[in-house]
Simulated assay, not measured.
Amino acid sequence: MIQNMMNEGKLIPSDITIRLIQKAMQETDNDKFLLDGFPRDEENVRTFEKLTKIEPDFILFLDCPEEEMTKRLLSRNQVKFV
C-alpha cells in the first residue's frame, strides 16, 4: 500500500508514517533521534505526540531558497564519484 501511494505521488498518512518511525526507534538502543524531513506540518506533530507519547525537545526548521531546494532534490539519486 505504501509503495503504491508513493508511486502515485501521494503522501503516506501520518499515523502509518509515525508507526514506522516508532518501530525503528524501538529497534535501537539509542535514546536520541534526528528525524530528517519529519514532521512536515502541525498535524504530524500532534499525531506523533499522541501515538508515541513523546514530546520532542525541539524541532529544527531550516529554510532555504526554492532554487537551492530544487537543486538538492534533483541531485538526491545521483551517484557522485570523488
Results as ranks from 00 to 15, higher is better:
Ile2Glu: 12
Ile2Cys: 11
Gln3Asp: 15
Gln3Pro: 06
Gln3Gly: 08
Met5His: 06
Met6Ser: 08
Met6Gly: 01
Met6Cys: 08
Asn7Gly: 05
Gly9Ser: 04
Gly9Cys: 05
Leu11Gln: 10
Asp15Ser: 10
Ile16His: 04
Thr17Leu: 12
Ile18Thr: 05
Ile18Cys: 05
Ile18Met: 02
Arg19Gln: 15
Arg19Asp: 13
Leu20Asn: 12
Gln22Tyr: 15
Gln22Gly: 05
Lys23Met: 08
Met25Ser: 06
Gln26Phe: 07
Glu27Gly: 09
Thr28Leu: 11
Thr28Ala: 06
Thr28Cys: 11
Asp29Gln: 12
Asp29Met: 09
Asp29Ser: 14
Asp29His: 12
Asp31Ile: 04
Asp31Val: 03
Asp31Ala: 03
Asp31Pro: 00
Asp31Asn: 15
Lys32Asp: 06
Lys32Met: 07
Lys32Glu: 13
Phe33Ser: 09
Leu34Ser: 04
Leu35Glu: 04
Leu35Met: 04
Leu35Ile: 07
Leu35Asp: 00
Gly37Leu: 04
Gly37Asn: 08
Pro39Asn: 03
Pro39Ile: 01
Pro39Tyr: 02
Arg40Tyr: 05
Arg40Gly: 15
Asp41Phe: 04
Asp41Ile: 00
Asp41Gly: 08
Glu42Arg: 08
Glu42Asp: 12
Glu43Ala: 07
Asn44Ile: 03
Val45Asn: 00
Arg46Phe: 03
Thr47Asp: 04
Phe48Tyr: 08
Glu49Pro: 01
Glu49Ala: 00
Glu49Ser: 02
Lys50Tyr: 12
Leu51Gly: 02
Leu51Asn: 03
Leu51Pro: 03
Thr52Phe: 04
Lys53Asp: 10
Ile54Arg: 08
Glu55Met: 01
Glu55Cys: 05
Pro56Val: 01
Pro56Asp: 03
Asp57Ala: 14
Asp57Ile: 12
Phe58Arg: 10
Phe58Asn: 09
Leu60Ile: 14
Leu60Trp: 14
Leu60Arg: 13
Leu60Cys: 14
Leu60Met: 14
Leu62Trp: 07
Leu62Lys: 05
Leu62His: 08
Leu62Met: 15
Asp63Cys: 03
Asp63Gln: 07
Cys64Arg: 02
Glu66Arg: 13
Glu66Pro: 08
Glu66Ile: 06
Glu67Ala: 14
Glu67Asp: 15
Glu68Asn: 11
Glu68Arg: 07
Met69Phe: 10
Thr70Cys: 06
Lys71Asn: 11
Lys71Glu: 13
Lys71Asp: 09
Arg72Glu: 07
Arg72Tyr: 09
Leu73Asn: 09
Leu73Ile: 11
Leu74Cys: 06
Leu74Thr: 07
Leu74His: 09
Ser75Arg: 07
Arg76Asn: 08
Arg76Phe: 13
Arg76Tyr: 13
Asn77Glu: 14
Asn77Ala: 12
Asn77Asp: 15
Asn77Pro: 01
Gln78Trp: 06
Gln78Val: 11
Gln78Ile: 13
Val79Lys: 13
Val79Asn: 11
Lys80Trp: 07
Lys80Pro: 03
Val82Glu: 08
Val82Trp: 05
Val82Ala: 06
